[in-house]
């Protein structure tokens, strides 16, 4: 029973408490670059989750065999291999998405979220815990990308996943689709997350 509890807490912390984007502020480049549409945000989230899961598994299996001095280069080569797989897979099966994500697919290699998790977690913990951690972090990352891209897509085009959601006399805010819109939206969302966190903390204090 205790074992399951540990696994569950490894998994759940990635969703809110240690959410990679809103709490730890890592993996920002793809976050800002591909979130002009929910479709692209979702694809990037899933691609990152797969890479994180696969490399966490491999690295935690081999954690006792990789010499400490060369661990970072070894991690990067393992990650780069999986990213190559993802990139070829997307090119073959989803050419349209592959084209839209373009140069940002190879950049998953240097996403600090993935390397950070290897260094902080997978290289020190047994495989089943590393998998739980990778899943939680990956899903937390994907959910944050969806949150950010839905704000941008709804305000920027009036659609959600390609379906019209705002009707009537609405003029799309084109700026939301451009780089400035990405920075502004993420900045304001970070503020919102901080406000929610503070409210939750205050309520806990009152209860005590």
């Amino acid at each position: 029973m205790r074992k399951i509890n540990v696994l569950f807490s490894d998994f759940i912390k990635g969703l809110w408490q240690e959410n990679p984007i809103f709490r730890l502020l890592i993996g920002m480049c793809p976050t800002l670059a591909v979130t002009s549409q929910v479709k692209n945000g979702l694809a990037m989230g899933l691609a990152t989750t797969f890479t994180l899961l696969a490399s966490s598994t491999i690295i935690s299996i081999f954690r006792n065999f990789i010499p400490k001095e060369v661990r970072i280069p070894s991690y990067i080569v393992i990650i780069a291999t999986f990213v190559t797989i993802v990139s070829l897979f997307l090119k073959a099966n989803f050419p349209e998405i592959s084209k839209e994500l373009g140069p940002y697919v190879p950049l998953i290699i240097v996403n600090c979220l993935i390397l950070g998790r290897q260094e902080a977690f997978a290289s020190k913990n047994p495989t089943h815990r590393a998998i739980a951690d990778a899943l939680g972090m990956g899903i937390g990352f994907t959910l944050s990308l969806i949150a950010l891209s839905s704000v941008r897509e709804v305000l920027g085009m009036g659609t959600l996943l390609g379906h019209q959601v705002i009707f009537g006399n609405f003029r799309p805010w084109i700026i939301m689709l451009t780089p400035p819109g990405a920075f502004l939206t993420l900045g304001l969302l970070l503020g919102l997350v901080n406000i929610i966190n503070k409210a939750v903390k205050n309520r806990k204090k009152k209860k005590q």
Partner: peptide, 17 residues
């Protein structure tokens, strides 16, 4: 609530503009 990274990102938005 905007202290730190929040305000930095908003300034970056204006710079990008």
């Amino acid at each position: 609530s905007l202290k730190g990274p929040g305000i930095t990102l908003i300034i970056a938005g204006i710079l990008a503009l």
